Amino acid sequence: MRYRRLIALSVLAVLVPLGATACTAEGPGSKTECQVSGCTITFDRGVDAKASVLGMDAELVAVNGSTATLRVAGQEVSVPVGETQPADGTSVTVQEITTDTVVVRIATGLQGN
């Protein structure tokens, strides 16, 4: 019985910090998943898609072929799929563009994806 309690407490100690470091939210035309390292936003195409992450607003402005144009904290940036561009102290990476969605990773600092 004592070992079960110790195991249960150990599992709880590991899971509680993980739950506190990740969150998911949905906004107009977007779904956001955040962790300590940054946020992944799935924007719906063809709508006024916006999200608020890391204390700033992010908006899908346009898609031209394999390049997405986004407005991050008021700064417009065009990013080809698989590449990273800086925007207002963050790094913006376009991970995927489909006919329905654009998946973008916004991270603090200027690290890559």
Score class of each variant (00 low, 15 high):
T69M: 02
T69P: 01
S66K: 01
I7K: 01
D88I: 10
T40G: 03
C34T: 11
P86C: 07
C34L: 11
V72Q: 11
T84G: 00
A20Q: 12
K31V: 14
E26R: 13
E26L: 07
D88L: 04
P86K: 02
E83P: 00
T108I: 13
L15C: 07
K31P: 00
L60C: 05
A22I: 06
V102T: 10
G38T: 05
T101N: 12
V47L: 14
G112E: 13
V77L: 09
C39R: 04
E26Y: 03
E33V: 14
A13N: 07
G112M: 00
G65I: 00
Q111D: 06
V92H: 05
G112V: 07
T90L: 11
T98Y: 11
G29N: 01
S78H: 01
P28Q: 14
V79F: 05
N113T: 06
S52Y: 11
A49K: 02
E83K: 05
G112C: 02
V16C: 01
I97A: 05
T32W: 02
V79Y: 08
V104Y: 00
A87D: 09
R71D: 08
T42S: 15
E26T: 15
V72K: 00
L60S: 04
D100N: 12
A49Q: 09
V103I: 15
G29E: 12
G29M: 01
A25L: 15
K50F: 01
S37A: 13
D57E: 11
K31H: 02
C23D: 12
F43P: 03
M1I: 08
T67L: 02
L18H: 04
K31L: 09
A49E: 06
R45N: 11
Q111S: 11
V94C: 09
C34M: 07
V104Q: 04
G38W: 05
A13I: 12
G46K: 04
F43H: 06
G55E: 03
G89Q: 09
G55M: 08
S37V: 15
S66E: 11
D88G: 02
I106E: 14
Q111T: 11
P80E: 04
L9N: 00
T93M: 09
T42C: 09
V72S: 00
T101R: 04
V47D: 12
D57V: 06
G89N: 08
S30I: 12
G46Y: 10
A51W: 10
T90R: 03
Q75N: 03
Q35E: 13
I97V: 05
L9Q: 02
A68L: 07
T99G: 15
